[in-house]
């Protein structure tokens, strides 16, 4: 109530409610960043396919039919069949589902880890900041893929492990960006004002710091989705990702499938093409989002 007394602001012109704001944002995205909007739309198509994969897939993902082994694309099998007569389109769709599950969960965990480390490091500062940042330095020294391979070699492959390890990997790396944003907000007038009237630290964090680094978190989450999809595919390709018989796009390009590609070259096309398109789309959308929400982050990839 006190807020209303202190600031008699007229009704803002921005549309009210979550749905109104979402529509306003989409309109702005389409007008100012058409390419980014297109990327977002393509990604939504993949997301849709992933969510409804079980209904859309014409055959079961592991339904073998040895009479139609290694058949070229046809009406019955639009993307052909593999060496066990499994329908490639169905496997691609289920692969989309797995990609979406892993990438949303891992990017979510990653963003949360970035937030916690970034806030601890940026808001508390001092020794905590120094020790945490040296740790982050050391972590980021190791190449992503090598770090993943080593950790997976210890904890073993599997969806939960992959999600947690990928989340941790990108979360720690992304904490740098959150920390930078937190430091800026911490030095702002309203944070100082809140501190001077004796607001508790948790209150300041929840009401001032976190809402103001929200744009950074949204951009971070979006750009991480593409990175997670690519890295998970790389791991599956090496045989260290989601274990078979789950048909991930990375795994479809590796292992036994590889030897049959010489007889059925179409097997080599669909999974890679899907990966490229979906990652390209989300990258372009992420770039546009960053330009609209948080121009400061430009070029910080």
């Amino acid at each position: 109530m006190t807020e209303a007394v202190l600031s008699p602001v007229p009704q803002p012109l921005v549309p009210q409610g979550a749905v109104g704001r979402l529509f306003a944002f989409v309109r702005r995205l389409v007008r100012e960043k058409p390419l980014g909007a297109a990327g977002g739309a393509i990604f939504l198509v993949f997301l849709f396919c992933g969510i409804f994969a079980d209904f859309l897939a014409p055959y079961g993902m592991n339904e073998t039919n040895l009479e139609v082994r290694l058949e070229a694309p046809s009406l019955a099998h639009p993307l052909g069949t593999d060496h066990l007569g499994r329908d490639v389109l169905s496997r691609i769709l289920i692969g989309a589902k797995l990609s979406m599950i892993v990438s949303f969960l891992a990017a979510g965990i990653g963003t949360l880890v970035s937030l916690v480390i970034g806030v601890l490091s940026g808001y508390l500062g001092g020794k905590t900041d120094m020790i945490l940042q040296r740790g982050v330095d050391a972590w980021m020294t190791f190449p992503d893929l090598v770090l993943l391979i080593v950790i997976i070699s210890v904890v073993g492959p599997g969806i939960p492990q992959i999600v947690i390890v990928l989340g941790l990997l990108y979360g720690i790396a992304g904490s740098r960006i959150v920390r930078g944003a937190v430091v800026t907000v911490k030095e702002s007038m309203y944070t100082h004002a809140a501190q001077s009237i004796g607001a508790r630290t948790l209150h300041i964090l929840a009401r001032h710091i976190v809402p103001n680094v929200m744009p950074v978190l949204i951009v971070l989450f979006t750009t991480r989705i593409g990175a997670v999809i690519l890295t998970e595919a790389g791991l599956s390709f090496l045989g260290l990702g989601v274990p078979p018989p789950e048909p991930t796009w990375g795994a479809m390009l590796s292992g036994t499938g590889r030897t049959y590609m010489y007889l059925g070259p179409w097997l080599a096309l669909a999974p890679g093409l899907c990966l490229t398109i979906v990652v390209y789309a989300i990258n372009v959308y992420g770039d546009a989002l960053r330009d609209l929400l948080d121009p400061r982050m430009r070029g910080s990839r």
Partner: peptide
Amino acid sequence: LLMLAVPGFWLGTLVMV
């Protein structure tokens, strides 16, 4: 931008096949 999205192992596979 495209090169950032293409998985290296796919390029490798294409060159092999």
